[in-house]
Write a protein that binds this DNA or RNA. Structure first.
Length: 545
DNA sequence: TCCCACTGTCATAAG
DNA sequence: ACCTTATGACAGTGG
């Protein structure tokens, strides 16, 4: 069923032809065609429009009807001024082919009342010259009601209304060139919703702006991202050209990102205020398109890459490292997913750097209010913001990590301003110092941990030694008691020459060199000094126990 | 509001 | 002379 028509503001139309004429079949939205025709006939009443809609819907169900019948069927229902009809006929230029086209052409030309200017328009439009048709790569069924029925009122061509109906089903081959003649309603998703083609009444292909844009786009990789029809169409016309171009290219980028990563995306719409993106787009003078801030990060590389490459080095003063292949940036996907403004001029970069420095703290404050789970670039460090502002195509981590030779080579091989060189060196210095501080703190913590472990080991050993010491003390005490007991036992068994017990307060047991065992106590000190010298080698003695 | 741990940065010395 | 590393000191941040 046809989607309710909506007022197209140009921006919502742009980009909608994605894929049209290049890859996929497009259903024709009759209402969209009707809108275009309404633009030609703003004076038509609502009742007549409704009647036309009903008739067109009926015509869809009667697609097998011959064009001759359709001519009669819709005759008198669509009124166009001669000039407007010319536009309509021009619109069909290149879109129709084959016998059906020829038959319609003949029908049109055979109408005697048709104004001369209109007939000339038909001849010039290519309807009379099927050879102008440029076959496209894919057969597309569209414009199911493009039958042309004319009748004459017999009045002055300048004032009379010519009734024209477009009710013929055609099978067309689309070429990119053909697609430029169409405007489409933009689908919210590229693969699921019907796309509605609108016939475009006028198309100023002679605009110099278009020529420049086409040449530029052909030279850029954008042509690989968007159907040429989109690009040309969005540049071809409209007073809001810049806005439209940005919108369309944004959608193209989003689509590519989506297609590459199959990333679930909320309702994209066409508004830049969509919830998933805070991207602000900019267009440099050379036509390169990028966004300078708040890019949703889809990189899995942590810090990601700040910036990328430009294909046209002569146009944009960007930073492109050509040195060590290990550090070269060849991943165009990463370039696409990250900053694209590095191809601005260095002077522009310096001005934006200051702006970034001023806004960085503000952004950091904003981060506090946001969900920390988000991975927006507001989580980037100051250096990363600066690097992005200067369009340095390396991440801060890469700048700090790359060998000094590679770093110097990068500085030498690129046309860098003093600001850029200084910033690069600062980034590298801070990055390396950051890592050094991290390593140092890690080592410090490791050292502290090792010292704590040493403390634990020493404390354990201390406790062990204490236990051993106490064990030895107990052993010593036990041996002392044992020895005293033995000493007393031996002493009690000693007798003097008269057989009397020895007084322990007057004698001590001492094995002298002359064979004696007991000696008087007052002689112990002198004897002890002598025996000490001897007795140490003999295992000691029992004096003083 | 204070405390504390963590982190980044700067300055400086040393290699 | 230049670069890197180590380290103390300081400030910001978040729990």
């Amino acid at each position: 069923p046809p989607v309710p028509p909506r007022k197209e503001d140009g921006a919502t139309v742009l980009g909608s032809l994605r894929g049209a004429g290049c890859s996929m079949a497009e259903d024709v939205d009759l209402k969209a065609c009707q809108e275009t025709l309404d633009e030609c006939c703003p004076h038509q009443g609502e009742s007549q429009l409704k009647l036309q809609e009903d008739e067109k819907e009926e015509d869809i169900n009667q697609s097998s009807r011959s064009h001759a019948d359709s001519l009669l069927f819709f005759e008198g229902h669509l009124q166009l001024l001669p000039s407007q009809m010319e536009n309509v006929l021009e619109t069909t230029d290149g879109l129709v082919q084959g016998n059906t086209l020829g038959e319609i052409r003949q029908d049109l030309l055979l109408l005697p009342e048709l104004p001369v200017s209109t007939v000339e328009s038909i001849r010039c439009s290519g309807l009379c010259e099927p050879s102008n048709y440029k076959p496209g790569p894919k057969k597309v069924s569209l414009l199911e009601d493009t039958q042309l029925v004319t009748s004459s009122t017999g009045q002055d061509p300048s004032s009379s209304l010519h009734n024209i109906s477009l009710t013929q089903t055609f099978c067309h081959r689309f070429s990119p060139h053909d697609a430029t003649l169409l405007r489409t309603d933009y689908p919210t998703r590229s693969n699921s919703e019907t796309r509605h083609l609108h016939s475009q009444v006028s198309f100023p292909q002679s605009s110099s702006n278009i020529t420049i844009s086409e040449s530029l786009l052909h030279g850029s990789n954008l042509t690989g991202l968007f159907p040429m029809a989109d690009i040309v169409n969005l540049m071809a016309h409209d007073d809001n050209f810049d806005e439209i171009k940005l919108m369309a290219l944004k959608e193209g980028l989003d689509t590519v990102v989506y297609q590459l990563f199959e990333e679930p995306e909320p309702d994209s719409g066409l508004s830049l205020n969509s919830s998933h993106s805070t991207t602000s787009y900019s267009v440099c003078t050379e036509g390169a398109v990028g966004y300078s801030s708040a890019v949703k990060s889809v990189s899995s590389h942590g810090l990601g890459v700040v910036g990328g490459h430009s294909q046209d080095d002569s146009k944009c003063g960007h930073v492109e490292y050509l040195g060590d292949s290990k550090w070269s940036r060849e991943d165009t996907l990463q370039q696409l997913l990250h900053n694209h403004t590095y191809n601005q001029l260095p002077s522009q970069a310096a001005s934006t750097l200051e702006h970034h420095q001023q806004t960085w703290m503000e952004k950091q404050n904003e981060v506090k209010d946001r969900c920390h789970n988000s991975t927006t670039d507001t989580n980037l460090s100051y250096d990363e913001h600066c690097a992005k502002a200067l369009r340095i195509p390396f991440s801060v981590h890469e700048i700090a990590r790359m060998p000094v030779d590679s770093f110097n080579t990068m500085l030498a091989k690129n046309r860098l301003t003093d600001t850029q060189v200084s910033l690069l060196r600062d980034i590298r210095r801070r990055g390396r110092n950051r890592v050094a501080a991290q390593n140092y703190r890690k080592r410090k913590l490791d050292a502290i941990h090792n010292l704590e472990e040493d403390i634990n080991v020493l404390q354990t050993r201390k406790e062990s030694l204490k236990e051993e010491h106490s064990q030895c003390s107990r052993s010593i005490k036990w041996m002392k008691r044992k020895f005293n007991s033995l000493y007393r036992d031996i002493f009690s068994r000693l007798r003097d020459d008269q057989g009397r017990p020895i007084d322990p307060y007057q004698y001590v047991i001492h094995c002298s060199s002359n064979g004696s065992v007991l000696i008087p106590k007052h002689l112990v000190k002198s004897e002890q000094k002598q025996d000490t010298k001897k007795g140490r080698s003999m295992g000691g003695h029992f004096l003083g126990l």
